[in-house]
Design a binder for these strands. Structure first.
Length: 469
RNA sequence: AGAGAGGUGGCAGAGUGGUCGAAUGCGACGGAUUCGAAAUCCGUUAUACCGGCAACGGUAUCGGGGGUUCGAAUCCCCCCCUCUCUGCCA
């Protein structure tokens, strides 16, 4: 008996263009000037202290959506520390200015041979020296405390982010494609990969450990095919291909927000103090750390394939069999850097791009808007894309596309020069396009048949075969 | 890994204790000249923080940190990085 499934999509689903209409966001967000003013302050300058100071109520309301318990205490601590910081800075600068002036005078006196006059002035410089030392010591303490607290504070969610505590509260934006009906004899992918001998967990376990599978034969070729397919699609969509290092230094970890929040999630090479990247987002976004980008270079659109490494300590258990969760996996990531006013349109575009990939792979999927409680630490708005895994009868997350607004840019010191000639923080975004393992799981399960696994058309030329088995 | 050299503004490259945030050149920007352009000439040309509505003023930054000194790009100590040679190596 054959039970081959080709999912039937309504034809229009394949038309990513004509012009994509944003259906995700309140219309007010993109255009309305009244809102734009608020947006400009709160959402474009997020987590700069000045913003916290001028928009405390809005920030607190946003953080409440995340159920971030100590928001009020943290914000008020930040404001107090900042006030103290300014005061100290002013006093310190004044004392230093006087000292500099005296030093100049002393120089003049020495030159003219007035030793005694110089000595008189030196008495005052000694006092000033003590004063500036006291000030700068406290200043260092205050700034450190300020930074520590700022680093603890997550991004403020976008206004469209729904209330909610967990993944159950995420909003299903849309569901596309038809779930295949499999017979009772259908196998989950971990049985299929054994049956066809394409991925070997035992071997990976032998040479490395659990969560490091070995891809063999058609399995390995499928991996390579998917990577090439994703990269080609990204290039066609206007992204520049990047091949970054997969070890990064500590500064990069802080830049994109993995540190200090997710210290334990990354593999750390202590001998060299380098981290194995959990996603290509880290190196590709950090390319622009501490840069001022010329406006005509914007938007930056980069894509890259890398292996990704995640310790995922403590999160093993049910639902993580087979390819569902790994310590090492392959992923193609897309990254954008845009002007603040362009970032939400860019996020739309990224989601559309990712949907295009899933449609070409003929996988049923759904798009979720993550609720406040389920969003990542650094994100202002995140869409997850999940594919239907027909044998497991579950949705599997294969992509996450986020707008970080200025949150990462503030840490990265990533700016451009605005029309007024002043430097201004940019917005950063990224999305998986796509993560491979769960795509493979869904492809295997959804397309299984007695005589093998029929791959979607688009992969045939990339693989060099059309069927596994 | 061993030996040596070096890290200065967008780049190149001076500066070895006192108006040095830093000569000079290139590049970029604005202007003059030109029908237009090249050439030439004049001017501008970093970032962050503090104060100020602003104009503007102050402070800091010459790889990073600490020290000496009234005063540090310049002297001393530690660390990091880059280059050259030797060794090793895909």
């Amino acid at each position: 008996m054959h039970y081959q499934h080709r999912i039937a999509y309504p034809e229009k689903q394949f038309e990513v263009s004509p012009p994509y209409q944003s259906c995700f966001y309140p219309k007010a967000y993109s255009k309305k000037p009244t809102f734009a003013l608020v947006q400009n302050r709160v959402f474009c300058l997020m987590l700069q202290v000045s913003v916290l100071r001028d928009n405390t109520e809005l920030v607190l309301a946003g953080l409440a959506k995340r159920h971030y318990k100590t928001a009020e205490a943290d914000v008020s601590a930040i404001l107090n520390l900042d006030q103290r910081r300014k005061q100290l800075q002013t006093e310190h600068d004044q004392a230093q200015a006087e000292a500099n002036d005296l030093a100049r005078q002393i120089g003049g006196l020495m030159k003219s041979g007035d030793k005694a006059g110089a000595e008189t002035l030196k008495a005052r410089t000694a006092e000033l020296k003590q004063l500036t030392k006291t000030h700068s010591d406290e200043l260092v303490q205050v700034e450190e405390a300020l930074q520590q607290t700022l680093y603890k504070l997550p991004n403020v969610p976008h206004s469209s982010v729904p209330e909610g505590r967990s993944a159950d509260d995420n909003e299903v934006v849309r569901e596309v494609g038809t779930k295949p009906e499999l017979p009772a004899t259908a196998k989950p992918h971990w049985e299929l990969i054994e049956q066809y001998d394409i991925i070997d967990f035992a071997l990976g376990n032998k040479i490395t450990g659990a969560g490091f599978p070995v891809y063999k034969g058609q399995g390995a070729r499928l991996q390579r095919a998917l990577i090439n397919f994703f990269l080609d699609e990204a290039r066609n969509a206007g992204y520049t291909e990047i091949q970054p290092p997969i070890l990064v230094n500590e500064a990069s970890g802080y830049g994109t927000g993995q540190l200090p929040d997710k210290e334990g999630q990354m593999y750390h090479s202590t001998a060299d103090d380098l981290y194995l990247i959990p996603t290509a987002e880290v190196p590709i976004t950090n390319l622009y750390r501490n840069e001022i980008i010329a406006p005509d270079q914007l938007p930056v659109r980069n894509a890259g394939y890398t292996p990704c490494f995640r310790r995922e300590a403590g999160s093993w258990g049910a639902h993580v069999r087979g390819l569902n969760r790994l310590h090492q996996f392959d992923k193609v990531e897309i990254v954008q850097i845009t002007k603040p006013e362009d970032s939400y349109a860019a996020l739309d575009g990224m989601v559309v791009h990712i949907e295009g990939l899933l449609q070409k792979l003929e996988l049923p999927y759904r798009v979720l808007r993550l609720c406040g409680g389920d969003m990542g630490f650094t994100s202002a708005l995140t869409f997850d894309l999940e594919v239907w895994s027909a044998a497991q009868q579950r949705w599997l997350e294969v992509s996450s596309a986020s707008n970080f607004e200025t949150y990462q840019a503030n840490r990265l010191k990533l700016r451009y020069r605005g029309d007024n000639g002043k430097t201004q923080l940019l917005h950063t975004l990224n999305g998986s396009a796509l993560a491979l393992p769960r795509i493979v799981a869904a492809l295997l399960e959804n397309n299984q048949a007695e005589d093998g696994i029929q791959l979607p058309e688009v992969l045939h030329s990339y693989c060099g075969f059309s069927k596994i088995g």
